[in-house]
Amino acid sequence: MIRSLHIAAKDLKAEFRTKQMLNSMVIFSLLVIVIFSISFGDLLGDSKIVSQLAPGVLWISFTFAGMLGLSRSFASELENGCLEGLKLCPVDRSAIYNGKIISNAVIMFLVEIITVPLFVVLFNFNITGLFELAIVILLGTIGFISVGTLLSALTVNTRTRELLLPVLLLPVIIPVIIPAVVATGKILTNGDISDISGELRLLLVYDVIFFVIAQLVFEYAIGD
């Protein structure tokens, strides 16, 4: 575990120094929210319609901003052959995966922390279930990052990785996105934790299954 934290710390230090990934993810995410809020125009006055449309907008912004980051996650290790340097270290391959998950999740959470307040303001929401929303976003993000990190490793050595990653990732994360959108919608219409327990269970099961599968297959994903 400690080696995973060292890998995550290294990734975050490099990222916060250049902010290449973070800046583009934040800008993309905010742009999606702003563009949708403008395009919905007068509809934003009708809280019923907004609560049906807005959760999808929020998760579209998270998903596509996240994909920008994931596509760079392992690609940045190709510079100077660093991925091979990591593979030469005496650590389990799963430590590399876990380190990448931690750094990807931290960056994703930062993007979400910046995006959600703008979303609340532009879509004219009065969120009472902030805690519930945080849980949904946490579980949804972990599921997204678990699969995305694995697929990012799998596609890193392909020439068309930027195209291949979304094509592979989007179908696989549907079981995360659907319950996350449904749960977010319920929270935005003042639902409480009991109203979203089914969706939370789905997200939790998905997170555990994909985290375990990724641990088992990661070695093959980054093998030659």
């Binding site: 230090k13 100077n80 052959g81 091979e84 340097g85």
Partner: peptide, 9 residues
Amino acid sequence: HETYLYNEL
């Protein structure tokens, strides 16, 4: 010939 070094560090 690859240095295995991180440019940002």
